[in-house]
């Protein structure tokens, strides 16, 4: 059973690596941000599976932090400044 969890985590890690391609190539900043968000949720999945397989319940808490803080980045990214748009 543990092997299965690790195998599933391996698969999720593969999808994470695929998402990294999107972060790297873009083309737009919104694409990158979106892909980073996807990395966050597959990271949560990996952490859950690792926590179950390795028997480290504290990893569930790490997953919770992942979930909480993924939003902050998106909010910071989409935030508009009033004085912005003046350049170029």
């Amino acid at each position: 059973m543990d092997e299965f969890y690790i195998g599933a985590a391996l698969l999720l890690l593969l999808t994470m690596a695929g998402g990294l391609v999107r972060v790297a190539v873009g083309p737009s900043p919104a694409d990158r941000m979106m892909a980073a968000q996807l990395l966050g949720s597959s990271g949560i999945g990996i952490l859950l599976l690792l926590a179950a397989a390795l028997g480290i319940p504290a990893l569930f808490d790490v997953a919770l932090i992942f979930a909480l803080l993924a939003v902050i980045n998106v909010a910071a990214f989409t935030r508009r400044r009033v004085d912005e748009g003046s350049g170029a």
């Binding site: 737009s28 949720s41 508009r80």
Partner: peptide, 24 residues
């Protein structure tokens, strides 16, 4: 939380992409 955050984040990104404002 991930559901709410995902839906909200997607809305924010989509909105920002549509309006395309605030970026130099």
């Amino acid at each position: 939380m991930v559901l709410v955050a995902g839906a909200t984040g997607a809305h924010l990104i989509a909105k920002r992409a549509l309006r395309g404002e605030g970026e130099p």
